[in-house]
Write a protein that binds this DNA or RNA. Structure first.
Lengths: 344, 344
DNA sequence: CCTCAGCTGGAAAGCGCTTTCCATACCCTG
DNA sequence: CAGGGTATGGAAAGCGCTTTCCAGCTGAGG
């Protein structure tokens, strides 16, 4: 066999080797409605095996007019929140024999539209975008336009976030979760709270903040604007925000960080200040790898893997008449980081 | 415009709209060595923009005979070890305007070959496999054969692991890291050790174990076979192994878990047994999200993101004469989980 | 004024498949 | 034994691009 290196085995090679036509080889090897005689099919399959034939997916995609590609857009794959959701998406993709292509926006909202355009070019069958969309108008509009173009060309889209664009969405009940959490914390006897909010403009963070405030208001517990500090959505952001809050010299019983990662940063800051046993800390998400921090973190558990699964399942199912949405609630998990305050 | 829904804008549409030929449109829009008059190029570009044209990547790939696809195979994207490496790979991919397609083997070694075959079909430009390859002979052989076929068809491959197959490899110095760690722990005064080893047959785990044993042997510190317990490479695996070890009633001063995640499980078990302050614990990897556990974990820091970057960079660079390898060392980080023992 | 080189636009081949559409062979019925 | 299905293999069109190759036009040089 005198194939140059650097060129792959093609179906034509297989056909020749098996002594049949290209059409027959295709039918035997890659399936079809048409039948091919068992004896011949066997011959073709053997040839394919011997040559280590792997069908050219690009060519198949072109000929069939569809791909098995799922695009997944996350903000940061290193963040356990996103990697858990990604795991869910990948699991469903695998079950459907689809391959997933993934992109990280590094929290730059303008990247989303760019990646959608790229995926549109790849003729992806579906796109899942998981992100706390910002409220940046221009980026959102551009994303919407790209998504429309993608859908017009036959693709399907699901978002994991707020209901911000007219496409299928898995809505995470951030607001309700935070509201529940507030109620539980009040039930533990806490009355004076601080909040480590995320970056301004990040909707997930904003929703959790406002949900928490609603929860407090519902029980007539006040929250001074001075007790709310914004910071990055990261461990260090939580640490910095906590320091800032401590610096304001407020009397704190409990701190709510809008995600677990920030909460961990806050706990570190409190520990350094020797306050880790006197100030309660609560987070949000229930990140798996963080379940063993001490004291164990009170939080709102989000079924992240399931969220990823739901998103891809929704997008692979029969389309509805209009955009659908599926709501996922979190569940408050009380742990040692909020031991509570004995009623006085 | 009477395009059916469900079919995308094609270059031909753009050409017609701009009143030029297909060839010219291609040259204007997707670049070429050939020049096209500025006035015409402008007209084509405008048409493309107005129609929201996105070139069909499959078609381009076919015509050009190459893709911009990088395949990444990991064991479990939810595991922070892998997601950090993935982040590194994705960063380099983005810088090179390549898109990455990712697959999780869920720690089933036979999946690796299967995914390589799929990526070969997609005519991926490069594949990065990061995994602690098992010593399962059959799976390894099959993987080797697939990789050879992939390289023969012009693809490039890099492994992150041990030097087990004749391809470019980023070798993580697990053995040396564990050896150093042992030396440091001995320096802290510890003399009686337990080891929570990973699953049998998992090479990464085996290397760390044997490196640690070498380190002890080098200082003439004995380690009874009875003090080594194998367990899953997970938090729960570490927990279970620790329980088992405690059950053996040995006199322990310090425990080495072969990765951080197991170490965290072990710490939980020790805490439950009331031994968390009397037995030292060390891990391996220095997982970012675990840097805030208390007591802070002594470990061997691995530059995970950089490892991912190095792997893709190696594979995108000019190929060497033969398989190359690049060695990455870890650095011992002593923290509070191993306070040490005062010399008696 | 003719020739030839140098530009640049267009026609068409080809990338590796799938899928009509034909053609042939076979089997059944009357 | 003729006529009409019914299988099943093969030829060829077509998917959306890139890239030769060809053709027409322009301007320079003799």
């Amino acid at each position: 066999m005198t194939r140059r290196p650097n060129d792959a085995v093609t179906l034509e090679d297989v056909a020749r080797e098996a002594g049949v036509s290209l059409a027959t080889a295709s039918r035997a090897v890659n399936g079809s409605t048409r039948k091919v005689r068992p004896e011949i099919r066997e011959r073709v399959e053997r040839a394919a095996r011997e040559l280590r034939y792997a069908p050219n997916a690009q060519a198949q995609a072109m000929a069939r007019g569809r791909t098995t590609l799922v695009g997944l857009i996350v903000q940061d794959i290193e963040d356990p929140y996103f990697s858990s959701i990604a795991a869910g998406v990948m699991r469903v993709a695998e079950a459907n024999r689809m391959i997933v292509s993934i992109a990280s926006t590094q929290r730059r909202p303008d990247k989303e539209a760019e990646y959608v355009a790229a995926l549109r070019g790849m003729r992806a069958a579906a796109i899942v975008i998981v992100g706390s969309r910002t409220d940046e108008r221009a980026a959102l509009d551009r994303l919407g336009a790209e998504l429309t173009a993608f859908e017009r060309s036959g693709g399907r889209v699901a978002l994991v976030s707020q209901r911000r664009l007219p496409v299928d969405t898995v809505v995470v009940a951030n607001r309700a979760g935070a509201r529940d959490l507030a109620a539980h914390l009040i039930g533990l006897g806490y009355r004076s709270f601080g909040v480590l909010a995320g970056p301004r403009g990040l909707l997930t963070a904003a929703d959790r903040l406002s949900g928490f405030m609603e929860g407090l208001a519902g029980e007539a517990v006040p929250l001074s604007p001075d007790a709310v500090v914004h910071g990055e959505f990261t461990r260090d952001g939580g640490h910095a925000a906590m320091m800032e809050l401590l610096g304001r010299g407020r009397d704190l019983e409990c701190v709510f960080a809008v995600n677990d990662v920030m909460a961990v940063g806050a706990m570190a800051a409190l520990r350094a200040a020797g306050l880790d046993r006197s100030v309660g800390v609560a987070g949000f998400d229930d990140i798996v790898t963080l379940r063993d921090v001490t004291p164990a973190l009170t939080t709102v558990r989000l079924p992240l893997v399931e969220i990823g699964e739901a998103a891809l399942e929704m997008v692979l199912s029969e389309p509805g008449d209009g955009p659908r949405s599926q709501r996922v609630r979190g569940e408050v998990v009380l742990r040692e980081s909020t031991p509570g305050i004995r009623p006085r």
